[in-house]
């Protein structure tokens, strides 16, 4: 691993994860989860797991986000409270 890059990316990861579960707007939460997937794909490429990195970028940041937005279009956007 590349230690400084690893530390910065993991710090951002924790911040984005907490933001994604805290924010009220569900569309914003989904976009934050997509950003989370993209940052963790960077972490994996930097940890020499390139195959896992590009699978996560395609499946995690791409397909899962599309599924979630499609679900949100059929349900409510706002979280209660």
């Amino acid at each position: 691993m590349i230690v400084p890059l690893d530390l910065i990316a993991l710090f951002f990861l924790v911040v984005i994860a907490i933001a994604a579960i805290t924010v009220r707007d569900l569309l914003a939460a989904i976009v934050l989860l997509s950003a989370y997937s993209f940052v963790i794909a960077t972490v994996w490429v930097e940890m020499h797991a390139v195959d896992v990195g590009f699978t996560e970028a395609a499946v995690g940041a791409g397909a899962t986000t599309a599924f979630m937005i499609a679900t949100l279009a059929r349900t409510k956007r706002e979280e209660k409270r």
């Binding site: 994604a20 569900l26 939460a29 989904i30 989860l33 997937s37």
Partner: peptide, 9 residues
């Protein structure tokens, strides 16, 4: 939806 986001994390 928040529960599913937590599952992903």
């Amino acid at each position: 939806m928040k529960k599913i986001i937590g599952l992903n994390i």
